[in-house]
Design a protein around this nucleic acid. Sequence first.
DNA 1: CTACCGATATTCT
DNA 2: GAATATCGGTAGA
Length: 201
Amino acid sequence: MPGTPELEPILSGPPTEVAPRLLGAVLRHAGVAVRLTEVEAYAGADDPGSHAYRGRTPRTAVMFGPPGRLYVYFTYGMHHCANVVCGPDGTASAVLLRAGEVVEGIDLARERRPRSSDRDLARGPARLCRALAIDGEQDGADLTAGPVLEPAAAVAPDRVRTGPRVGLRQAPDRPWRYWLDAEPTVSAYRPAAPLRRRPAP
DNA sequence: CTACCGATATTCT
DNA sequence: GAATATCGGTAGA
């Protein structure tokens, strides 16, 4: 189809290079468009924080496939989160879409997240999926056809900030979270949940 | 704002 | 049995 963006140059290379390229890009699906303001890199076999670290499972199969697809997983028994699978091929690397700003279809997004402020509509990986109506149906979707990813011009390097990934106990030393400075839609940083003991009987 | 808690599929121990 | 790439509600400072 004419005008379809060419994703290959954007998604080739290690996830730590792909992630900052995705900042400012727009993901469109089901009547809503979100401009990405925060992402995280996951490097597959060498990365203890990655779902792919212990090898392929039914859940993670898409990450082991070709780049340019969406990896959607279901977690905590109720939420979906979306990643862009990137290259090089066979490495199971991906970039988690953590947050963004709704730039189109805001009324639809408000319907999908009724008690949310506009700022919070896509602030957090599961909220972003809800606003875009992304769920398990989109796992493995081609990003030039299903949910559509529209790359942005590279943002100024001094607008990109990095820090530790959110909610991970593993590999906290890798500052692989990337976000745009001074964006209100960037999600709040939360360290990994501490171990919680079962209450006494 | 921080802190806790419940919901509960998938995966691992 | 227990942890997890989370969120929304509630309670409190």
